[in-house]
């Protein structure tokens, strides 16, 4: 992490305060240089940015084949995702399924769930889209 000028100034002031009477330009410089080097060698502070939780809408399209629903629901169960609603239909021979899934109980983040589901999609030769529920709420509800 590169220190900003303000941070270096704050560091200098606190060094001077601690040294009190003994503060000479050389002593302050030495301490500031040492602490700056230590701070700069540390990796950047990364705040936790994961924003999962809530409900997702899982949509799956593909040729109608045995075991599609079972594979997807088993996959979700393994990830501790709770299926709240499920609706399916056949559209011209294509199987279409939409699920509302609560992922708050899952230890996995949304992107990890997407990765797992993509694996299942590849095996079953279907398409699976996973999107957070908020987007549908914003687009289709006033």
């Amino acid at each position: 992490m590169r220190l900003t000028e303000e941070e270096i100034r704050a560091l200098t002031l606190s060094a001077m305060e601690q040294l009190g009477e003994r503060a000479t330009p050389e002593a302050v410089k030495k301490i500031v240089a040492a602490s700056a080097a230590e701070l700069e060698s540390k990796p950047d502070f990364e705040k936790s940015t994961k924003s999962s939780g809530g409900r997702i809408i899982l949509t799956s399209f593909g040729m109608n084949a045995p075991g599609v629903v079972a594979a997807i629901t088993t996959g979700l169960a393994k990830l501790s995702c709770n299926i709240e609603d499920i609706s399916q239909t056949l559209m011209g021979g294509y199987f279409t399924m939409i699920m509302v899934v609560d992922i708050s109980g899952s230890a996995k983040e949304l992107d990890e769930i997407q990765t797992e589901m993509n694996k299942i999609a590849e095996e079953l030769k279907v398409k699976i889209y996973i999107q957070h529920e908020e987007i549908f709420n914003k687009m289709h509800r006033i």
């Binding site: 809408i57 949509t59 609603d85 609706s87 239909t89 279409t96 939409i98 509302v100 889209y129 999107q131 987007i135 549908f136 687009m139 289709h140």
Partner: peptide
């Protein structure tokens, strides 16, 4: 379900 089938498919059609 809170959303209609057509609503969900409309959003996916837009993005895909």
């Amino acid at each position: 379900m809170n959303y209609e089938f057509t609503e969900i498919l409309e959003t996916i059609k837009m993005t895909e």
